[in-house]
Nucleic acid binder design. Structure first.
Lengths: 340, 340
DNA sequence: GCGATTTCTGTGAACGTGCACAGAATGGGG
DNA sequence: CCCCATTCTGTGCACGTTCACAGAAATCGC
């Protein structure tokens, strides 16, 4: 059994006008809740709308209004993000709530390939959105260029290093890393190292900088292992290297929770107890942090606040208000669990 | 330091025409890659496009074309889904890839509150999308009503029980349950029971049916415990009941991974080893499956395929092709781990 | 009872595109 | 040289709104 969709055509404002025996203008006023409509006309029009099943055509509306009342939310790198990073979901929700409050529709666009980039660029160019929130933009991202060229109000969650002057909201990685390291040192650890990751990104570099800030003159380069990615396997690798180089290590700051989880495995393999022999702290407060044994002490990413903040930055621009350049840095509370 | 966004107005096809010294029609032909344009005109127009920074206005285009070349992807219940269910991300990606291939833009809309429902309904009504993919629709979902009324091509991932006649893609719960039970029996278990859950939903009822299919004449109603929800606590409860009724039980099919995790706890409390004394299998291949000790043998949900399948169903309708009514059922591979 | 308001309604233009159609060039063939 | 087919180009209309404006109807003050 099959069905062929009968694409019945939509009722227009004109149909409503005819049905109610009034003009288009009056119907438009009713639809948009404007004053100067008599009670009788209003009633007739409302009945007619119901009868013909009228819904306003947004394409036509946004053509004449020059705006769509929608804001794009662009996610790059979805494979790793969507499937592993729980933050992205919360950022999404935070942004959605803020945009909802302002009666904007959030439209989430996923870039999963080169082809997607071009298509999304076309979509954005087309006037379907009034503003854009970009998550995890890459350096020299073509999407960024498109957005810039269009002069579309934009806000980044995090920010590519080449775009410091565009509005963004993020966290102070350096300061958070410093605070966390200090907290770890406060437990009395003597030989504290770090598994630094993704030093080519500013987040990775900043976390390392915060670590060295905290150590001060006690800093020992032999106690820093660098791995390419914020990943579990990289954590295993990094921890092995640290154990090899400095067997007396008794504290580790891993650049992310995933890295920390890997470190825990390497420590277990090496017969070290956590937090007995070695204290371990992570970063992100992701699902990893609660899943590991013992659960990780870490820094909480205010994901929902990041989304809401980015939305707010876009809304400000949409309202024509001045926007602080250089970005908004959110507070990151330390979550102390059992791993240190 | 602040910046006020200069909302410079967009170049139109008319501006390009003037710049290139040709007419709108010719520019339109170049933009849409149509034949019958002289080489000189084409060159002049391309230069003009570049010079004035023209990008086509999709709102205008979709107004006249009566389509937007976009498909909505609607997610309800985002809090639990986005933050816990890894499937949703994969479904999203699967759908995105399929739509990309057909040169459609996927537009993801999140419903997080009552207010969102109304706004999304308006958005869909407005002609911004040509079709809709709906994930996890509720029974009597208002969004579903809107979509039905608009006659918008739709596909569900999973399906609410009141909508059997709309296109959907899901899994064959009955067959999957039968296959899994047979696999469990093949390990040599003699007394295999089931913790059935959510028998008021078709997925729950089908899983039980598959179980009885596999058992055939060996089926013993005393070996089936029924619990209301796919939940951890319900699993604990159900397993206790089974152990009480049939202490000689040596195999259990739990209706979901969460239920299976609960069953593991009850078995541990009762001093039974898994898989030594009792083999346990779950369903879903969710995060639970890898988190438990021992990790669960279970049935994998083909999440990415569900997304791609739903996209394909929508695309078929968009092309005006006949669509199988009653839905598409996907194959579900068994993932055999250590719990049985 | 009449002008001055206030409230209400209808009309035409515009938004930026695609498309059908008409018409202008071009190029051959007779 | 003319006719016809082919290739190319321009024009007007339609899509469904909103908005400014003009004009009609009602209300009011004197």
């Amino acid at each position: 059994m099959v069905s062929v969709p009968a694409r019945r055509k939509r009722a227009t404002i004109h149909d409503v006008a005819v049905e109610a025996g009034v003009s288009r203008g009056t119907v438009s006023r009713v639809v948009n809740d404007e004053p100067y409509v008599s009670a009788s006309a209003r009633a007739a029009i409302e009945a007619a709308i119901e009868k013909v099943g009228y819904v306003p055509n947004n394409a036509a509306r946004s053509l004449v209004m020059q705006r769509s009342q929608a804001v794009g939310f662009i996610v790059h790198e979805p494979h790793s993000l969507f499937l592993e990073d729980p933050n992205i979901g919360e950022i999404l929700l935070g942004a959605n709530t803020a945009l909802s409050d302002a009666d904007y529709q959030m439209v989430c666009l996923i870039i999963d390939s080169e082809r997607d980039t071009a298509r999304v660029a076309r979509y954005l160019s087309g006037g379907f959105v009034d503003g854009v929130i970009i998550v995890s933009a890459r350096q020299h991202d073509p999407i960024t260029r498109v957005v810039e060229k269009l002069g579309l109000p934009t806000a980044f969650v995090g920010h590519p290093p080449d775009l410091r002057d565009l509005p963004f909201v993020g966290i102070d990685n350096r300061r958070s890393a410093r605070d966390l390291t200090e907290r770890l040192l406060a437990t009395g650890r003597q030989r504290v190292g770090m598994i630094a990751a993704a030093l080519d990104r500013d987040s990775g570099a900043d976390r390392l900088a915060g670590f060295t800030d905290a150590l001060g003159e006690r800093f020992d380069p032999a106690l820093v292992a660098s791995v390419p990615l914020y990943a579990y396997a990289a954590g295993v690798e990094g921890m092995r290297e640290l154990l090899h180089r400095s067997p007396d290590i008794d504290g580790v700051f891993a650049a992310s929770d995933a890295v920390a989880a890997g470190a825990l495995e390497a420590l277990r393999d090496a017969g070290r107890s956590v937090p007995g022999d070695v204290g371990v702290v992570g970063f992100d407060d992701s699902a990893w942090a609660r899943r590991t044994q013992p659960p990780l002490s870490t820094v909480h990413q205010p994901a929902s606040g990041l989304g809401a903040g980015a939305a707010e930055l876009v809304l400000q621009q949409l309202r024509g208000e001045a926007t602080p350049v250089g970005g908004l840095l959110l507070h990151t509370p330390i979550v102390w669990r059992a791993s240190a």
